[in-house]
Design a protein around this nucleic acid. Structure first.
Lengths: 70, 70
DNA sequence: ATAAAATGTTAGATATAATTGACATATTAT
DNA sequence: ATAATATGTCAATTATATCTAACATTTTAT
């Protein structure tokens, strides 16, 4: 699995560290790190929580053929 | 958690049974049934597989405040 | 009416998401 | 230089997604 650079960018745009995001959604820093690095397959509820904190949708951060230049 | 009626409707629109969809994405019928009934929290990769089979996006089937008239 | 297919649900097992804790490296300060 | 913060990663544990297998109910046929 590849890295999730859209997630990394959305987090950077909010000036949050991995730990900040982890605390905001109620998981550990290692979990956020693993998701950004594509090391595993989070649950949809966690994805939804992350999206809400970062002001994005599922398609923005986790859908693939989404090359729309907004 | 509430039922996922959008998933149920999208599956019906393809005239697929729960077992048909389960076979198409490589899980069991019970897993599809549990997702439709809101009994748990699937992984994002499974959600993406389901969306692809049904010709929908993550926002279509799993995002919440999605009242956009496309 | 009955047979077949689809769905709902449950118990027990397995795979893996997520945790805790630790350590290393990199970055950004002072 | 060093102190602090952020990130990468790994081993061991816990929580839970998913499986297997079974049985009941509902729906759609014959």
């Amino acid at each position: 699995m590849g890295k999730n650079l859209r997630l990394k960018a959305a987090r950077a745009a909010k000036d949050m560290s991995q730990k900040d995001l982890a605390d905001a959604v109620g998981v550990t820093r290692q979990t956020i790190n693993a998701i950004e690095n594509g090391d595993y397959n989070p649950t949809i509820n966690l994805c939804i929580s992350i999206c809400k904190v970062l002001g994005k949708t599922l398609n923005d951060l986790f859908w693939e053929d989404d090359q729309s230049g907004e």
